[in-house]
Design a protein around this nucleic acid. Structure first.
Lengths: 158, 158
DNA sequence: GGCGTTATACTCGGATACCACGTGTCCGAGTACCCCCGG
DNA sequence: CCGGGGGTACTCGGACACGTGGTATCCGAGTATAACGCC
């Protein structure tokens, strides 16, 4: 089980976007320079966030990305699910009904116990991520970092 | 994020092995017939469980696999970790220290907030899986299934 | 009949190909801005 | 000086190759069994 490396990019990128003044935008190229990651690939991932309704993308000069709603209402789960998909890592293929030892359908009225356990664990993971928002992340950053980002973003939007 | 399909095989297989009488063993070939999955590949995964100390593998005629300890002391997490690895799905590559907007090391004394959030979520997932044992799974199976498995296993070992 | 030896058949374990998803890159469609021209 | 039109440069979005890890398979090393011959 492994999350795409781009999930880290998206999380950090969203944290920077959350520090923008209201209405301002940042382009994918600027963000890729900011973090030292491939530009086109980052844009590809940010496009997923746009499709998920987390970001809003504007084209043309002075265009770029901005949050679709307040940072308090963007959870970490929203970001991870957008870039990685919301599906359960464990998919039950009803193994108990296959092979020589297959259980009869009348014994399978209740969901597979193993699938239920895995599902609950995934729900616990999701709940843990849904409890933290972008606002929490930004609030926890040192002032020096906030100041530096503000300066860089102002210079970029300029 | 996706768990290997073999994790389902291993979970169901372990549940069947947990139903064995003490001292009895089941071969990989019998298990693959039981579930209708490729034999050699299943054995490859069970070998991981042996390396992890969950199963014990015996060679030669009448050989096979058996639990290394009581089902009450084998958690679902043990099985999943053995087949998929125990690493965190999210790996922090210290993105904050890369690129143009890199933070100075003196601002990175505390761990990355995003990495901490992801780590806690993973811990919640692990805790949820560690709370369930093979004994719990077997106890929840219908009596008809238990009886059927007992009959099949006796026929195999008999 | 009992015991040692040998041959056997069965088991696991690791080394070897194939395929899908994630990674990385590119180019095209669309749009807001800016400049220029005319009134 | 003000308004309109066109050019331009910049943006995102989707389509195209490459590499790594999961999937599937095979064959070899090792061992408890069982038969066999000998005492």
């Amino acid at each position: 089980m492994k999350l795409p490396e781009t999930s880290e990019w998206v999380l950090h990128t969203a944290a920077v976007i959350a520090q923008l003044p209201p209405g301002a935008t940042v382009s994918g190229a600027q963000l890729s320079e900011h973090f030292g990651v491939p530009g086109p690939y980052l844009s590809k991932q940010l496009a997923k966030l746009v499709r998920a309704g987390v970001l809003i993308g504007s084209t043309g000069p002075r265009g770029g990305f901005r949050l679709a709603r307040a940072p308090e209402h963007v959870s970490i789960l929203d970001l991870v699910a957008a870039v990685d998909g919301a599906g359960d890592p464990y998919v039950c293929r009803e193994l108990r009904q296959r092979g020589r030892g297959a259980a009869r359908p009348e014994d399978c009225t209740t969901p597979c116990a193993l699938a239920s356990v895995m599902r609950e664990a995934h729900e616990a993971w999701r709940a843990s991520l849904a409890a933290v928002t972008l606002a929490d992340i930004v609030a926890g950053l040192p002032d020096s970092v906030l100041e530096k980002n503000r300066r860089l973003l102002l210079a970029a939007t300029g």
